[in-house]
Amino acid sequence: MAPARSSSPPQWTSLLYSQVRFTLKASITDKNWGPDMTENKNSAAGNPVRTAWGRARLGTRTVPAMMPAIPLGILLAALIAAAAALAGFAPQQPLLGAAIVAALMVLPMCALAWAFLVDRDSLKGAASRPEESVESRWYDNAAAGAFHDLLIFSGLGTAVLFLTPLEIEGSVGLLAVSVVGMLSAGVRYTVNRRRG
């Protein structure tokens, strides 16, 4: 019955998964199970309303999660764009290059900021014990399978590069590993979900 725990999900998934684990751990410690173990309180203290995008805690009060997530995402995208310009991305037109990087990064960074800031107990329809839900099992199985796929892929790839004159750039190789890891985890999760 115990799910496989040896997993190495891709960077993005790992980051979000860590946040999910962190928030659910916080929600577990915030539980107030009654004598019959059937009732729990909403841990979004002072804000019993659940919304589609949830709320974020700022000190003692809560605000819609998108309110701090959007400016933080824009700031992160701007920092990445500045770093890209300083690193010599598009040296002929550094401003245009930075603008393109910022435009491409702003949505993912806003999403990342939201994932880190949102109090999951304020999300509409969120289970209060996601670690005991079947979706958690699907994710664990998919992550464990993806880890083994990555081991096989990187092992075979290393052998091919070692035994043949083929050469690839490090960034291309890492991109390939990331794509394989994400595809593997995504496909495996979907298969698990369809099986029920």
Binding site: M1, E39, A127, R129, E132, S133, E135, R195, G196
Partner: peptide, 20 residues
């Protein structure tokens, strides 16, 4: 009441998911 997703209840009822 259990604090889990509806899909979890469905999967348990179908015998496809053993609860903790």
């Amino acid at each position: 009441a259990l604090g889990v997703s509806r899909q979890t209840v469905i999967s348990i009822e179908k015998g496809r998911f053993d609860p903790s």
